[in-house]
Design a binder for these strands. Sequence first.
DNA 1: TGCCGGAATGATGTATACAAATGATCCATA
DNA 2: TATGGATCATTTGTATACATCATTCCGGCA
Lengths: 250, 250
Amino acid sequence: MAERDSDRSVSQTVRAQLRLRDLILSGDLRPGERISELQAVETTGASRTPVRMALVRLEEEGLLEAIPSGGFTVKAFSERDVLDSIELRGTLEGLAARFAAERGVSSRDLEPLKGCLDEIDGLVQQDRISIEAFSSYVTLNARFHALLTELSRSPPLIRQIDRASALPFASPSGFVMTQSELPQAHETLLIAQDQHRVVIDAIENREGARAEAIMREHARLASRNLRLVLKNKTYFDLLPGLALIRTAGD
Amino acid sequence: MAERDSDRSVSQTVRAQLRLRDLILSGDLRPGERISELQAVETTGASRTPVRMALVRLEEEGLLEAIPSGGFTVKAFSERDVLDSIELRGTLEGLAARFAAERGVSSRDLEPLKGCLDEIDGLVQQDRISIEAFSSYVTLNARFHALLTELSRSPPLIRQIDRASALPFASPSGFVMTQSELPQAHETLLIAQDQHRVVIDAIENREGARAEAIMREHARLASRNLRLVLKNKTYFDLLPGLALIRTAGD
DNA sequence: TGCCGGAATGATGTATACAAATGATCCATA
DNA sequence: TATGGATCATTTGTATACATCATTCCGGCA
């Protein structure tokens, strides 16, 4: 009870949530497995109250499933579930882009997005993309999607997109790192970046339908990557949460 | 402490959640107002633990907003927020309809939907629609939308639609009762029912784009009603949650 | 008179004890 | 041997006490 207080700033609830999320996404807690509160208390070091709080939040996050008689199990996802989650996220981002286009955005608001775009350009135009560059891409890509979502200026929509992106394999940057080992990596990044450029262009020209369509298609790049990754399980370590997907083989 | 145990079957958490939700939607707790746990403990009769649980769930539901320093306030919605929530729900239902159309549904699965359709026909084809008929419509309409959503056979999407429909003014049947006093009530119901028929037809013919488009448009009927209702605040009692909308006048 | 600081008050975060319910195991009986 | 029931263990749901943090209000000082 002396070395346990790493990060005294955050609450026990948050700490328990982070720790449990890690355990779930890393696969230490297996899909379908029931989570014992007492066991969670031991592994997190927090008491039952914050642990219970964390469990409720993880359920809302979509990583846990409530058992009718009480308690939680780790959620299992089919490949179809994941593909649908990606399509769902793409649809919502498409709506955000359409809102932005229809409602209009000031050049002041577009500035940070274009800056982000330029930074990504600097990365993808290299001949050989290093692991570090992929890592930077993940950060920049996440920022781009966050900024784009905010252009909708719709709190309810932003909220819903955040929730849809909470699952790591459904998030915009989920499959970027898994690409790093794929032969078609560079090509995919170039295409993705072009889509980034197109959606900005569409928003500037107030082409709502175009902006919406391109964001939907943009998400489908992730679908393609999922299929590739599931065929070749070598890359499992690169995307936490992949352990939650029960494939036909299991 | 004797008459308080109404419904001993459900947990204190659920009871507190129901009670607090009622207080929020009825307007007894005003938008922006901070919710005191101790105060909530008094009004619900439960202790702090289940009350805190209920508050967390109501936050996820979208009715409360977490204060960074701790605690919750009742969320306030702008007219735009509500309109966006409706558009959002329509978009998700559109996606569900498209999934259903593209993936195909058996006539076995369509049966209950068509039955629902027929029952609604029986209601809207009356010359004069009684209040009781409106009430029945609400039930049948909710069932129709639930069945339709399930046709997507996509648990992630179903889950997201449920969450998007949690706010009463965003739910498919939200504005039906408010229509009951409007002159164009009958016309609106006829149109809505025609859209129900069209979406089923589109799904049967595997016309994904058509199914999606009609569900989006279907949700916009609710948008129209919201605008009518906000102009004429007489109908506020008919839709719980309307008290959460801060109009320009406030 | 206005501003700054500290104390007091009330809030939330956490831990833990207790109650109730669920699920499992074992024995008895058919 | 299989099934039924009862007891026991483990789990979750609830209540409450305590600690810690934020907020507010009052008084002193510039």
